[in-house]
Simulated assay, not measured.
Amino acid sequence: MTADLSPAMLDQWYPVLISSELRDEPVSAMLLGQQIVLFRTSKGVHAFKDLCIHRGVPLSLGRIEGDELVCAYHGWRYDGCGACVRIPSLPPERAIPDKAKAIAYSCIEEHGIVWASIGRPETEKPNFFSHMNADHKVVRMGPYELEAAGPRIVENFLDVSHLMFVHEGLLGDSRYSEIQDYRVNEAEGVLRTDEIVVFQPDADGRGKSMNSHYVYEVYGPFTAALVKRNPDNGELFHLFLAVLPITETKSRAFMLKARSYDLEAPDEAFVSFQDTLIEQDRVMVENQNPDLLPLDLQAELHLVCDRMSIAYRQRLKAWGVTFGTA
């Protein structure tokens, strides 16, 4: 599978698990159609291909002992770097074969999420982390399990003109559905829209109506953000979306919201509001046809308000993204 994937897909950081999901036992997960195993030791989090090279048994069936992952089938032991450090059936004086290794992947833990890459990430952390304001309060939302292609989920997130209908009464009002013309620009590898003004009856679940100013950003094939500000009072938040493409039609979406206001307020209200929005979006993204996002711009009809969607599809094509696209 990975031989058919472009570096633009393989070399990304993907959110895989909430930190609390990874405890004392290895956990199996799927990323871009490939089975991986994640486990925790005293040295941090680790990710391997979920396969023991000896007889092909998933390493996720094993256990953790003394910072080593032990295969359930024959007791082969692997350290956090993937090297096999003991084979019980091998006499002590015999050297462990050089080939006795697990395929190790990059893995980190940030913002309560375990991230992994099955390629060679260019950055030590997801590239959008540098866009987080250190003075803002960050809250994690999700993960949300969706029976939809990753690119469909990202494009829905970038679609400003659905707010007035799918999220009417919350993020929009169908009486004010016209979208001003805007442009999409690129700077330092990030796609970014001009500011788009949207009337919102209940902008973030606090019952306040306002004219919000939106800016959408795309950092990679499966990562995007919404920057929303209220010029009247200076409120600002950055909502980051990172999607784990499990299979071509199944995904896990994680969100991080960094806000400049109500820093002492409980996060639960903001999380609950986002939960509601996701359930409204679920009906749309799980029923789109075709399931995979068409990269041929002639396959679907586009309007001026879809400029960001068009730019995103063009960028996916340039990146060589074939997973979740048609």
Rank of each mutant, 00 (worst) to 15 (best):
Y261I: 04
S272A: 15
D24N: 08
D98H: 14
G82Q: 00
M1D: 07
V37S: 02
P58E: 03
L61H: 08
N133F: 01
F129T: 15
L59A: 02
V114N: 10
R252S: 15
S174L: 11
P15N: 03
L163N: 10
F129R: 05
Q12K: 07
L226I: 09
I53D: 06
Y105G: 06
A224C: 05
V198M: 10
E109Q: 07
V160Y: 06
V190P: 01
A269K: 15
E168H: 08
R55W: 06
D173L: 02
A100L: 01
P266W: 07
R152I: 12
G205H: 05
V227L: 11
D267R: 06
N211C: 14
Q12A: 01
C71M: 03
M132Q: 04
R77C: 05
E248K: 05
F39S: 06
Q298G: 11
A148G: 06
P151F: 01
Q314V: 13
I36N: 04
E21F: 01
P92D: 14
E68F: 03
G324M: 09
D232S: 13
R282S: 14
N287S: 13
V190N: 04
A225F: 07
E178A: 11
G75C: 09
V190F: 07
Q34G: 12
R120F: 12
H238V: 11
Q12P: 12
H74R: 01
R77Y: 10
L292K: 15
G112C: 09
S130C: 09
H162M: 05
S89T: 15
D281K: 00
N211V: 02
G142D: 00
Q12G: 12
A318V: 09
V197Q: 05
